[in-house]
Computed example of a mutant assay.
Amino acid sequence: MLDDIWVDDSVRALRPDFAVLIVTAHGLRNGPTDDRSRAWLAAASAVEVQTDKIDAWKDAYRAFGAKPQRTRPSVDALTRRMPLPEINRVVDAYNSISVKHALPIGGEDLDKYVGPARLVRASGDEASEEALGQPEPGEVIWRDDIGVTCRRWNWRQVVRTRLTEETTNAIFLLERLEPMSLEELKQAGEELSELLTELSPEVRISSRLLSSGK
């Protein structure tokens, strides 16, 4: 799965500084928010928002024609929801890392994917859930063989691949633009892996970095 994920050259041309750290976790034991994941959310909520990193994502949205004040990058929307919402333990884990590092992170049920994930510019005729609406031509989207999995780069994910309390195998997409360094991106991935391992000691975690030229 990791080796088959790719980023289209048209997206790289739009933002040559883009990189994504892909983390897969097999054998998760998820469940409702508990005191442990609640503490992670509280600690992240206390961190000062790094507006420079969020502003970079707003610029990226404008580059493909989106209006970030109407459809906000995921990390921007998340930092506006303090205190952070309680979803479930795995989502709480990646949301806390997302806010701590001002880093968009998508978490999805790997078993609900059909074919590999890929980041592309939309043609405009991709299958999409009604609640998300149809992507516009040129819009940056994540998709699989069925259709859209996330619109407007990281604005909103589909219900089909949502992480639930029954999810056992997951994929996480940690998306970086400058001024975040690749070193911090890797650190965020390590921190996420630590939280997932704390939740599920037997979890099997793998990762792959996709950056410019790779």
Rank of each mutant, 00 (worst) to 15 (best):
M1Y: 10
D3V: 04
D3E: 13
D3T: 12
D3R: 14
W6H: 11
D8A: 12
D8R: 04
S10V: 06
R12I: 10
R12M: 08
A13Y: 02
R15Y: 00
P16W: 14
D17Y: 01
A19P: 09
A19L: 09
V20H: 08
V20F: 03
I22M: 11
T24Y: 09
A25R: 09
H26M: 10
H26S: 13
L28D: 01
G31V: 12
T33K: 06
T33Q: 10
D35K: 13
D35P: 04
R36F: 07
R38D: 08
W40Q: 10
V47L: 09
E48H: 04
E48F: 01
E48D: 12
V49P: 00
V49H: 03
T51M: 09
K53H: 14
I54E: 14
W57T: 06
K58C: 15
K58P: 00
A60I: 05
Y61L: 11
R62A: 15
R62F: 11
A63S: 15
G65I: 06
P68A: 09
P68Y: 06
T71W: 13
D76L: 14
A77E: 06
L78E: 10
R81N: 12
R81F: 05
L84T: 02
E86V: 07
I87F: 13
I87G: 00
N88E: 09
D92H: 03
D92A: 07
Y94V: 02
Y94L: 03
N95S: 06
S96K: 03
I97V: 15
S98V: 00
A102V: 10
L103S: 00
P104G: 08
I105Q: 07
E108M: 14
D109A: 04
L110C: 05
D111N: 15
D111C: 07
D111K: 05
Y113D: 04
V114H: 13
V114D: 14
G115E: 02
P116Q: 08
A117R: 04
A117D: 03
G124Y: 11
D125L: 08
S128N: 12
A131E: 15
A131K: 15
L132Y: 00
G133C: 03
E136I: 11
E136S: 13
P137C: 07
G138N: 10
G138D: 09
I141F: 07
I141D: 08
I141G: 04
W142I: 06
R143G: 02
I146P: 00
G147M: 10
G147N: 12
T149P: 08
C150H: 14
R152A: 14
W153S: 12
W153I: 13
W155V: 03
R156E: 11
R156S: 12
Q157A: 14
Q157H: 14
V159I: 09
R162S: 14
R162T: 15
L163T: 11
L163H: 05
E165M: 04
E165R: 07
E166P: 00
T168N: 04
N169L: 11
I171W: 04
E175W: 00
R176F: 07
L177T: 01
P179K: 05
M180G: 01
L182G: 12
L182S: 10
L185E: 08
A188D: 10
L192N: 07
S193L: 12
S193A: 15
T197Q: 08
S200D: 02
S200G: 01
E202K: 13
R204L: 06
S206N: 11
S207E: 14
L210M: 13
S212G: 09
G213M: 04
K214C: 01
